[in-house]
């Protein structure tokens, strides 16, 4: 009987362990990005480009940490629409938070197949122009 209960409780515990990590990327996304790019990453009309299964982000995964931290301006074409409205960088995000946000984009917005490692994000950040 006791063992039974433990067997039920234990997997729940494990699941909650994993989701804590995932949620932090999601909650950072909701705090720092969703007001503009939308909760589901669809962007907003022709003012703000999409991130969800969108070509620009998928083709520029080697620059995303820099875009998040230092912003981006000038014309960018995303899914055939040209956007031209500066995005301010979010300077106070740590490499860890950026990694979590990018991994949220991987899991929920199909950014790419492979998850991001902290080292990869650190390397990107050291090479921002």
């Amino acid at each position: 009987m006791r063992l039974h209960r433990l067997l039920v409780v234990f997997p729940i515990f494990l699941i909650s362990c994993f989701t804590v990590e995932d949620n932090s990327g999601k909650s950072s996304y909701l705090t720092h990005c969703a007001s503009c790019h939308g909760e589901s990453g669809k962007g907003f009309q022709e003012l703000i480009p999409p991130l969800n299964q969108a070509d620009y982000a998928q083709e520029n995964t080697d620059r995303l940490a820099c875009i998040i931290k230092y912003g981006i301006e000038g014309e960018v074409e995303v899914e055939g629409v040209v956007y031209d409205q500066p995005m301010a960088g979010i300077l106070d995000l740590s490499p860890e938070e950026i990694t979590n946000i990018l991994n949220f984009l991987v899991t929920d917005f199909k950014l790419r197949d492979k998850k991001f490692q902290l080292t990869e994000v650190r390397t990107q950040l050291s090479r921002c122009q």
């Binding site: 007001s35 503009c36 003012l47 703000i48 409205q85 500066p86 995005m87």
Partner: peptide, 10 residues
């Protein structure tokens, strides 16, 4: 050019 709450408001 409002970078903060305006996109959500719009």
């Amino acid at each position: 050019s409002c970078p903060s709450i305006c996109p959500q408001m719009k």
